[in-house]
Amino acid sequence: MQERLVDLGQDMRLVTDLLHDLNQKVAGTPTAPDATGSQESEGIPDELMAMVLEILLLTRANSTRQDIRMAQGSVEYAGLPVWEGKKRT
């Protein structure tokens, strides 16, 4: 149990660090590309997209089909596109 708590503490620190980094990226004013021409692409950072996708997949794995359909109905009602994974054949 102690080992698991240590692992969870480390995971929480990693997530906290990632959220802090993301906050720094979106909190500042936009900057022009530097002399090398590099600049982060506009839009949602890859780190945030990866977190959201992981949360979605974990939530779906632990949800009933009815719960998933209800959530998709709420997304449609909000006027947003519903994401559906590829159907297996």
Rank of each mutant, 00 (worst) to 15 (best):
S38Y: 09
L22G: 06
I44A: 05
G37D: 04
M49T: 11
G85A: 13
L5F: 14
R69W: 08
S63E: 10
M70K: 14
L5Q: 14
T64S: 15
E42T: 02
L48R: 01
P45Y: 01
D11K: 11
K25Q: 13
A61E: 08
A35G: 07
M51R: 06
T31V: 10
R60V: 01
A35I: 07
I55D: 01
G73R: 14
A35L: 08
D67N: 14
L56F: 07
H20Q: 09
Q39I: 06
S74W: 12
R4C: 01
G28H: 11
D67S: 14
P33S: 09
D34Y: 04
G43K: 01
V6E: 08
M51G: 00
P30G: 08
S74C: 11
E84L: 14
A71H: 11
V52Y: 07
W83A: 10
V75W: 09
W83M: 12
R13H: 07
A27I: 00
G73M: 15
R13P: 03
G9T: 15
T64I: 06
T29D: 15
D21G: 11
P30W: 04
E54M: 00
N23T: 06
T31G: 05
I44H: 01
N62F: 07
V75D: 09
V52E: 07
E84P: 00
A71D: 10
A50S: 14
Q10M: 07
Q72C: 15
G85F: 11
R13C: 02
V26K: 02
E84Y: 04
N62I: 03
L56C: 04
G9C: 12
L14Y: 08
I55Q: 00
L53Y: 10
R60C: 05
M49C: 08
R88T: 12
A32F: 09
A50Y: 12
